[in-house]
Design a protein around this nucleic acid. Structure first.
Length: 283
DNA sequence: AGGCCTCCCTGCGCGC
DNA sequence: TGCGCGCAGGGAGGCC
């Protein structure tokens, strides 16, 4: 599920819950996530104080007080659920407000002050890593640019991509080139930029990249401001769900009229993922 | 090497 | 109603 805006929303929500807290107890469930749990995961977290939280690509990065870094990737269905002392749900932090299924809780942390943090993941495509802070750079070495980094230029993306025959949509979802853009925001950004998702990356001029990067940045920024997108069960919510799904122009809107020209939105498959677009507006 | 496909896992909605 | 199929926001590995 979570793309950059959702992970950013999670990090911002977790920050006040975790920062400065000591992890007093850790319970790890019997099932592995995408990868086996890190060696001695519970022991290595227990007693640690959380110093800071940040995001890199679609990963949550949690810095601990012993120069270890806990890295959490939420996969498709991973979610953190925070409970304040007394079991009251801590609102406002999470992109997926559908009722959590406790049978899919895989990790529970007790925090100083009486709070609790739970990791829940139905499909178990998420994963956790625990490493020395010094190894973080190497762990992220294959990741591409952060789309909201002010230092990122259209020229850099043009240079990386202007020989690629692959279609532009899978290119902007390739985390080795540009991070954080997933299936929803790729379709939305290409619609905003009026670029056909099937165009080859090598057909993109520098001017096209200027338009597309600006569109990606606009879509991601607005989605962060809305608290991300919440797709499932968002009718029965606690009022803290993400709100960007209401702004989707094309995603999951096949057959509905294009907001610009009224032509029905098309759906097609690219590299195994659904793409939504307007065949009239996007060229 | 680049690019595409399959698979990991569970749940849900749809059509028959 | 019940069942089987396809599909779901990610990404690694393998194949051509």
């Amino acid at each position: 599920m979570p793309e950059l805006p959702e992970v950013e929303t999670v990090v911002r929500g977790l920050r006040p819950v975790l920062t400065g807290k000591t992890i007093t107890a850790v319970r790890v469930g019997p099932k592995a996530l995408r990868f086996p749990w890190p060696e001695s995961f519970a022991d290595r977290l227990t007693g640690r104080r959380v110093q800071a939280l940040s995001r890199r690509a679609k990963s949550v990065v949690i810095a601990l007080d012993d120069d270890q870094v806990w890295l959490a990737h939420l996969g498709m269905t991973g979610r953190f659920v925070a409970e304040a002392a007394g079991g009251v749900h801590q609102p406002g932090a999470f992109y997926d407000a559908s009722p959590r299924q406790p049978g899919h809780d895989h990790l529970s942390l007790d925090l100083s002050g009486g709070g609790r943090l739970i990791y829940n993941d139905v499909r178990r495509f998420g994963y956790m890593k625990l490493m020395a802070a010094a190894d973080l750079e190497a762990a992220f070495a294959t990741l591409g640019a952060e789309p909201l980094d002010p230092a990122l230029t259209p020229e850099a993306l043009y240079d990386l991509c202007h020989r690629k025959t692959m279609a532009i949509k899978p290119v902007i979802m390739d985390q080795r080139l540009l991070v954080g853009v997933g299936n929803i925001y790729a379709s939305e950004a290409l619609f905003l930029a009026r670029i056909d998702p099937s165009r080859s990356a090598q057909s993109m001029s520098l001017a096209d990249w200027r338009v597309l990067l600006a569109a990606i940045q606009q879509v991601l920024s607005q989605a962060i401001a809305a608290g991300g997108s919440t797709l499932r069960d968002y009718a029965q919510i606690d009022g803290q769900r993400g709100g960007y799904q209401a702004h989707f122009q094309v995603y999951d809107r096949a057959g509905e009229p294009c907001p610009h020209c009224q032509t029905p939105i098309q759906k097609r498959t690219q590299t195994g993922r659904s793409t939504f677009y307007c065949a009239t507006c996007q060229t």
